[in-house]
Write a protein that binds this DNA or RNA. Structure first.
Length: 410
DNA sequence: TCTGGGGTCCTAGGACCC
DNA sequence: TCTGGGGTCCTAGGACCC
């Protein structure tokens, strides 16, 4: 049976079968939200970014602009691009609207990021029709309720569904029929395999392996020897189309981080301390808002030569207390100071991991009888009511915590 | 082309315990 | 004086993804 979908304005693909997993991926998400909210941007190259390209509309991508590209390069490629600063709140709101549509489609949704998810639609055929129809309706619903273009890949497995959406982008729909999976998969370049990035791609290509089909004929032991145990096994399975992973709902975040690029200028210790304090302040607030606690505090460093290092410490007790986390971060920074003085510092970051729900801990009561989180709660409350700039630390006053250099200045 | 910010998972060695 | 095997946790680094 061969179904042909026709959706106005979309990249149309023929859809000859059905599969139970959808991979739904919003197109150029941040840039699409900007074009949705400002009609003047529609049809024009749009770049969302601070000092670097966070997202580019398809008009900009057509000119070679890519995510993560420097502003200078993007300007050279596309001088007439409209550059807008990111509006994270608007994107979070748009994401919520889209995930609402997902939730109305099926209860089995696994979010991968702010703009993509797997949906298990197996077993819905009787009430919602075949997967191809469910996918087409999903695209229409996202367009009408959120005003955004979304691409959907449909297949029997997660991996095939994700590859399918990648091939169908932008604003497309592609179904991989059961009986044509290998025909679809094997001619693709190895970079389409999930987990093949720059390094693995280079390793494979050095050995003349450029397509998924070439990976599929290699033995598992060969791939493990080449790429390590996990990556080798993973690739072996994917290339041979063995992907039994189910769509998993309710996955929890395992870490939470914040970082800040510093440029090449040398920073005084007091300045680093102020930046560290601001990062921890922000993170601890996010942690408490999520009703989570952490046990491990990790400092992320990037040096002048762009090599990276991490320095971490695991606390005896879980906490969401700003000062406790800050103490740990400061101790790590102090221990790293000689290295920083030697090598220069271009990025400072903090990550919190070993997360748990805050209901899992008992509040420690210090000697004055007040919970150690009392000050945090009071500050969180003021910031909720009056905005995040209502209260700040004396050490941060007068410091330039403003926006970074605008992207693509005239 | 001089390179952001937010994440996930894997590996490997050492400490420590039984 | 010499010395096994297994498990867990911690730390650091690295590849990869959006």
């Amino acid at each position: 049976m061969r179904v042909t979908l026709s959706v106005a304005g979309a990249t149309i693909r023929t859809v000859p079968n059905e599969g139970p997993i959808l991979h739904a991926d919003l197109d150029a998400f941040y840039a699409s939200v900007e074009q949705r909210d400002d009609p003047r941007l529609r049809g024009r190259p749009v770049i969302v970014g601070g000092g670097v390209v966070l997202a580019a509309s398809y008009e900009a991508k057509a000119r070679g602009v890519r995510t993560a590209m420097s502003g200078r390069t993007a300007r050279r490629l596309c001088p007439d691009a409209v550059v807008v600063p990111p509006r994270m709140r608007a994107y979070a709101e748009a994401s919520r609207a889209v995930f609402d549509v997902f939730a109305h489609t099926t209860p089995i949704v696994e979010g991968l990021s702010i703009d993509e998810a797997f949906l298990d639609v197996g077993g819905l055929a009787r009430i919602a029709g075949p997967p191809a129809e469910i996918a087409a309706r999903l695209r229409e619903d996202v367009a009408s309720r959120a005003g955004l273009p979304i691409t959907v890949g449909v297949a029997r497995t997660k991996f095939l569904a994700k590859v399918a959406s990648g091939v169908a982008k932008p604003d497309g729909l592609l179904v991989v029929p059961h009986d044509r999976e290998l025909e679809f998969l094997h001619p693709l370049p190895v970079e389409r395999l999930w987990g093949v990035g720059e390094v693995t791609s280079a390793t494979l290509r050095e050995r003349g392996i450029t397509t998924v089909g070439q990976v599929a004929v290699l033995g598992e032991a060969v791939l493990v020897a080449m790429l390590g145990r996990a990556a080798g096994r993973h690739l072996h399975a994917l290339a041979r189309n063995h992907d039994p992973r189910p769509v998993r709902t309710g996955r929890r975040r395992r870490s939470m981080g914040a970082q800040r690029a510093l440029g090449s200028r040398r920073r005084a210790p007091a300045e680093l301390d102020a930046i560290l304090t601001a990062l921890v302040d922000r993170l601890a607030r996010r942690l408490r808002a999520a009703r989570r606690v952490c046990r491990t505090v990790t400092l992320r460093l990037r040096f002048a030569d762009f090599t990276r290092a991490t320095r971490g410490r695991t606390l005896p007790d879980p906490t969401a207390h700003t000062e406790t986390i800050l103490d740990a971060a400061r101790a790590l920074l102090a221990a790293a100071t000689p290295t920083i003085e030697n090598q220069g510092l271009t990025l400072l970051g903090v990550a919190l991991s070993n997360l748990d729900d805050d209901g899992a801990i008992q509040l420690a009561l210090p000697f004055d009888g007040r919970p150690e989180g009392a000050l945090d709660s009071a500050l969180d409350d003021v910031r909720r009511r009056f905005g995040t700039t209502a209260i700040t630390r004396a050490t941060l006053l007068g410091r330039d915590e403003g926006p970074t250099v605008p992207l693509l200045p005239d």
